[in-house]
């Protein structure tokens, strides 16, 4: 196995970079989509609410591989997307549905009294949302978002089926030429494992920095992230 590892690591590291690019692009876009649709779901406007409900149900109700295929092959007649963008967009639209539900739940979980207090001070709804509710919700979002990001990282392997040489794509083509399927797949599994462990570690760091776990001390938000801890805390 070590000989395969040594003979493939250059190829696989390049593929790792592509997997990372895919994951980061799709999760960034997916988070944006998620936030927007979370607000649609919470909106009093019925049309927006329906739109978001349909989006979330359709995306959560169909396999990711189908979504990737539709985006890449299905709409090829209308617009041609490169495999990278077809893959990124499919992954973004997919994770966006789950992220929307995460954000919706968290915004609703913030005590109503917070919004009422802000409104009673004369703050308009959107200002109160932005300054008071969202900073508290975003902080609580880190553990479930971390979870969703791990899933997104692994789900990115499905873009191999539209011909991308990401980690899994590279593993498929490597195995078909060296005939060492078992060992090659184990090695590529270890690459994914390493990536996920690094991601988990970073999320854990972020949680500790923002003191997400402490219900009684919900005092740090992203603003504090780059400040040094004071002696009193």
């Amino acid at each position: 196995m070590i000989d395969i590892f040594l003979s493939t690591y250059k190829f696989f590291l390049g593929a790792t970079w592509l997997t990372l690019k895919l994951t980061l692009t799709s999760l960034f876009l997916g988070s944006c989509i998620g936030i927007i649709f979370a607000f649609f779901r919470l909106s009093k406007k019925k049309a927006l609410n329906y739109l978001a409900t349909i989006y979330i149900n359709v995306i959560r109700g169909t396999p990711l591989i189908v979504q990737i295929a539709i985006l890449y092959f299905g709409i090829a007649n209308i617009v041609t997307l490169s495999p990278f963008w077809a893959g990124s967009l499919a992954l973004a639209i997919h994770s966006g549905a789950y992220i929307a539900e995460i954000f919706r739940g968290l915004i609703q979980s913030i005590d109503k009294g917070q919004m009422e207090a802000a409104r009673s001070l004369g703050m308009p709804y959107h200002l109160a949302m932005r300054r008071i509710v969202l900073p508290q919700a975003f902080k609580l979002a880190i553990p479930p978002l971390g979870n969703q990001f791990i899933i997104g990282l692994k789900d990115s392997s499905l873009v191999a089926y539209v011909g991308m040489q990401d980690l899994w794509g590279a593993a498929l083509s490597e195995a078909s030429s060296n005939f060492q399927q078992m060992n090659t797949y184990i090695i590529v599994g270890l690459y994914y494992l390493a990536l996920v462990l690094i991601l988990s570690y970073l999320v854990g760091k972020l949680e500790a920095r923002l003191e997400v776990d402490s219900k009684n001390r919900p005092n740090r938000t992203f603003k504090n992230l780059f400040q040094f801890k004071t002696a009193s805390s």
Partner: peptide, 20 residues
């Protein structure tokens, strides 16, 4: 109503201070 609320202060049973 935002203008009205600016002129009407409210204190709540559960304080509702902004924890962050």
């Amino acid at each position: 109503l935002n203008k009205v609320r600016e002129e009407v202060g409210m204190v709540f049973q559960h304080f509702n201070l902004f924890p962050h």
